[in-house]
């Protein structure tokens, strides 16, 4: 009897060790809980980098790697995005051919609103991003759409982010709206799904791989990822949008990349920005 009891106890422990690796909720529409995800992510980073303040994650890798931060602080003395912000302001204030302008399309004349993006549009049944609405504004006023990744759209977006600095992200996933929750869940699933010839997920580099060398590069933590976009990336030598970076990352896993503003990328932005709720807008930023 004693042997049977011991065996039973042992088998229970054996079963438990196999199960503890598997998470148990938050992966379908019935159980997904954005706020629980956000708190779990913050806890992950608190455990992983105890010295880093959560509020400092808006600075990406510079929140957790002192040597990189030192270089970045020097770079920020003459921010490489400064001219783009000025150009963005000029573009923002230049009337369209019909006499209207960007200010006519946005709440508060487009000033200090970056923290409200992306948001769930119940009417359209989709996630709306700032860049998407910049181009919609142009089309509505008889102008041609801008290219999504760089150039003028990034400059206008940079100016709008600049006017929103220090405002706090508070992205909502409306309670009881299944479609909004599904969009959030799809973004979450995309982030954690391995894909491409290199079999990498976003999380492999930007969660588990945060501050772990990939050749000479240190991937940034996912917490705070979206707050500083658009960014002037030294590698690009110019300003680019968040979705340009998404396409680049997607390609880096040797996947056929999605186009900027694809619904899947907008859902990913929705998920990632929700994860950064409570952090401030600090775009545009400068990165390596």
């Amino acid at each position: 009897m004693k042997i049977i009891k011991t065996l039973a106890l042992g088998l229970t422990v054996a079963a438990a060790t196999q199960m503890t690796h598997a998470a148990d909720s938050g992966f379908d529409l019935k159980t997904v809980d954005p706020e629980a995800d956000r708190m779990a992510l913050q806890k992950y980073y608190k455990d992983r980098f105890p010295k880093a303040e959560i509020s400092d994650y808006v600075n990406g890798i510079y929140a957790v790697d002192a040597a990189s931060r030192e270089q970045w602080v020097e770079l920020e003395e003459f921010p490489p995005y400064e001219f783009d912000v000025e150009k963005g302001e000029e573009l923002f204030n230049t009337p369209f051919a019909n006499g209207k302008g960007y200010a006519d399309c946005f709440e508060n004349g487009g000033i200090g609103i970056r923290q409200n993006y992306p948001y769930w549009s119940k009417e359209e049944g989709t996630v709306k991003t700032l860049e998407q609405e910049i181009n919609e504004c142009r089309e509505k006023n008889g102008e041609k759409k801008l290219r999504w990744g760089k150039g003028e759209i990034a400059q206008v977006s940079a100016y709008m982010a600049w006017t929103s600095r220090d405002k706090v992200f508070d992205i909502k996933v409306p309670e009881g709206d299944k479609d909004a929750m599904a969009a959030y869940l799809e973004g979450k699933k995309f982030f954690y799904t391995k894909r491409g010839q290199l079999n990498l997920s976003c999380a492999n580099c930007h969660l588990q791989g945060s501050n772990v060398f990939i050749r000479a590069d240190l991937p940034s933590p996912m917490l705070g990822h979206v707050t500083h976009f658009p960014v002037f990336r030294s590698k690009w030598g110019e300003l680019g949008t968040l979705h340009r970076r998404y396409s680049g990352c997607h390609k880096d896993s040797r996947s056929k990349p999605l186009k900027p503003q694809h619904e899947t990328f907008r859902n990913l932005e929705y998920f990632q920005t929700y994860m950064s709720n409570g952090l401030v807008v600090n775009g545009p930023g400068a990165r390596k």
Binding site: A23, G26, K189, Y192, K194, S201
Partner: peptide, 8 residues
């Protein structure tokens, strides 16, 4: 298996 990487 995608969920296995999500922090809890």
């Amino acid at each position: 298996n995608w969920h296995l990487a999500v922090p809890q």
